[in-house]
Each structure stands twice: as C-alpha cells, then as structure tokens.
C-alpha cells in the first residue's frame, strides 16, 4: 500500500481514507480524492512510512482545523474535479469547458458567506485548485465595485473617523475612476 501511486481516476481506486473533522464528524473518502488535499497526503505518506515495519495502516486522519460543512463541499467539488479530468484525459480544451460549466453551476449553490469557510478549509488542506477557484469567485464579485458595495457584500461598517475616509479617497484618487455599477 505504501508504494501505491496516486490514481487520477477515483473509480479505479478502492482504498478509502477516513477524515475526522473538528466537530467530530467522520468522512470516508476515496484515496484519490483525499490525495488532492496535500495536507492529508503528507500526513498519509508519513503514516505509511512509519508503519512499513509494523504492517499496520491506520487511515483515520484528524483535521482539527476543518469543520464538516466546508469539508463536505470540498469533497463534492474534488470528486467532480477528478471525474471531469478523467473524462477528458486527452482533451484539455474540453476539460476546461466542462470545468468552467461545473464551477458556474457550483457557485449558484454557494452563499457568499460560505466562501470564507471554504477558502480557509481549502487553504488548510492545501487544495490548490479549490483555493484558487473560491478566491477568484470572491475577487470577481467585488472587482472594481464601489466601496459601499463591498461593505454591503461583506456586511461591514466603516470605522474610520470623520474625514479619514475622504483623505484616503483623495490620496488614492486614481483607483476611484470608472467604478462598475453595483
């Protein structure tokens, strides 16, 4: 098992890995999915190296910094990601189109507030594709929007003293030209 190479196709891998979240939920995921989470992969590889002599393989991996809610979403995203990759192994362009389509649909079911949990979880798990995807989603939601829109989007209130904000706006006048409509 320690020598088994990573398989890009989730269906060809029957090994399961168990992940335990900070709120004590247990997820059983295919090895190919778990290996996309670099933090898990690292832990898994270390464990295997340590267990080579004893012959045991414990595959329960604790994730003290990840809650079950974002993890479930990340697993779904990851499975689909692998599936699309496997289906279009020899056509990169098709793969990108499928991926784009899936990601657009995916975002419709994600509340903006969920994105921060997802980003933190993807960051902790070191799942690069998901991290980039969610960050891009947040960024494109506020790209060139007005300060007021951004505040409303994140539920923020200004805590500047009177005059402070105006001073900043003056100092950075170049970035307030041609703001997109809300």
């Amino acid at each position: 098992m320690s020598n088994q190479s990573e398989s890009p196709n989730p269906t060809s891998s029957s090994n399961k890995i168990t992940l335990k979240t900070s709120d004590n939920e247990v997820f059983e995921v295919e090895e190919a999915v778990a290996m996309k989470f670099c933090t898990v992969k690292q832990y898994f590889d270390d464990e295997n190296n340590n267990n080579v002599t004893s012959g045991t393989s414990t595959t329960l991996i604790p994730l003290p910094n990840v809650e079950s809610h974002p993890l479930a979403i990340l697993i779904t995203y990851c499975k689909k990601h692998l599936e699309i990759k496997a289906n279009n192994a020899d056509n990169k362009k098709e793969m990108e189109i499928d991926m784009e389509h899936y990601e657009r649909e995916f975002l419709k079911n994600v509340m903006p507030q969920e994105l921060t949990e997802l980003i933190l979880a993807a960051n902790y798990l070191n799942f690069k594709e998901a991290l980039d995807f969610f960050c891009r989603a947040v960024a494109s939601a506020i790209q060139n929007k007005s300060v007021e829109y951004v505040r409303k989007f994140f539920g923020l209130e200004s805590d500047f003293k009177p005059g402070e904000e105006e001073k900043l706006r003056e100092e950075f006048a170049w970035s307030f030209e041609g703001v997109d409509e809300d």
């Binding site: 507030q113 921060t116 949990e117 980003i119 933190l120 960051n123 991290l131 980039d132 960050c135 891009r136 947040v138 960024a139 494109s140 506020i142 790209q143 060139n144 929007k145 007005s146 300060v147 951004v150 505040r151 994140f154 539920g155 923020l156 209130e157 200004s158 805590d159 500047f160 904000e165 900043l168 706006r169 950075f172 170049w174 970035s175 307030f176 030209e177 703001v179």
Partner: peptide, 29 residues
C-alpha cells in the same frame, strides 16, 4: 464566523486588480 481572516485575504488579493484592492482597503481600518 467572520471575514476577518488575514490568510483568506492574502489569497483573494492575488485575484484583485490594484484599483479594487484600494477600494477594499478603504472599507474599514
């Protein structure tokens, strides 16, 4: 939960242009 996570913003910032970053900076201290 809150958006006040520095790590999150360091990542998101990589996808924002300069003018959008400034506007974000002007939202709060």
């Amino acid at each position: 939960f809150s958006w006040y996570e520095e790590d999150v913003w360091t990542e998101i910032a990589k996808f924002l242009d300069g003018r959008s970053l400034i506007k974000l900076a002007v939202t709060s201290k």
